[in-house]
Design a binder for these strands. Structure first.
Lengths: 142, 142
DNA sequence: TATTGTTATACTCTATAACTATA
DNA sequence: TATAGTTATAGAGTATAACAATA
């Protein structure tokens, strides 16, 4: 049996470990037939903020604009995102989901929810506490 | 303000977000003058399990053996890990920390602890609950 | 001068497959 | 036959810097 020593009481370490394990379980379950994981967050942000610019999307998911360019291109090629010039700023592009994007996101959300139900079972009635603590970390460390 | 929609109540999503933000804050603080993040976990495992094989190390940190090979080579070149043939199995290598490795790990642990104190402040007296929930996720999803 | 987005490029992390040598 | 480890290689994700167009 592998020992972990003092590391075992570090929040950062368990955050990383739990995320890693949870992510691999998710990848196993969803099988990645649809879309790479980073795309999912991007689509959710676009869905909830139609007309958002690439720069703002990058800020929302903490990625550089040069990372966003090929990501958006891929989503457009898949037919799930519509990319149109902004009416008010000619440097800027507006992003919205297509109807195909909406339904693909629904599929992905179902897969993610199946995985999340598994997580929900694991944490039981502590879910509220867990999410509140994670949010607190997110807000404090920005 | 960016909206997240239903995603906002998903454990998996917040796990990823909190880990990402926490990791970036850690990288900012430590400045990565020492070592890449994956190396840290490897060294902790070696410290707490002296003589461990590369295969076992890989299992402990959930990485393929082909990922371990260059990682170990780097640690050996840095002079922080000693790699010696096993006395009982001639296919196998044993890994231990050198004294330089011990002190580097102490430095890293201090940096990680500074970061973790920040996290401790954020979660306050809920730390025990948080770690217990994260561990439950780790154990359940393997 | 600053910002939006693209491109070229490079780096890190990771795994798969084929291999050698041992067990 | 199976396991420990290496190598070659490839893919995904990311960022930095230089750039053009526009603000």
């Amino acid at each position: 049996m592998i020992k972990l020593g003092e590391l075992d009481e570090h929040i950062g370490f368990h955050l990383r470990l739990a995320q890693d394990i949870s992510f691999r379980a998710y990848a196993r379950q969803v099988g990645a037939p649809h879309l790479k994981p980073g795309r999912f967050s991007a689509m959710v942000v676009i869905k909830n903020n139609p007309g958002i610019s690439q720069i703002a999307l990058g800020r929302a998911i903490s990625r550089d604009k040069s990372t966003i360019t090929p990501m958006v291109r891929e989503l457009v090629n898949l037919g799930v995102v519509l990319r149109a010039p902004s009416a008010t700023d000619r440097r800027s592009m507006t992003l919205t989901l297509t109807s195909a994007g909406e339904s693909m996101l629904d599929d992905l959300a179902r897969a993610a929810e199946a995985h999340d139900r598994r997580l929900d079972e694991v944490v039981g009635d502590q879910k509220g506490v867990l999410i509140e603590l994670l949010k607190r970390i997110e807000d404090a460390l920005v």
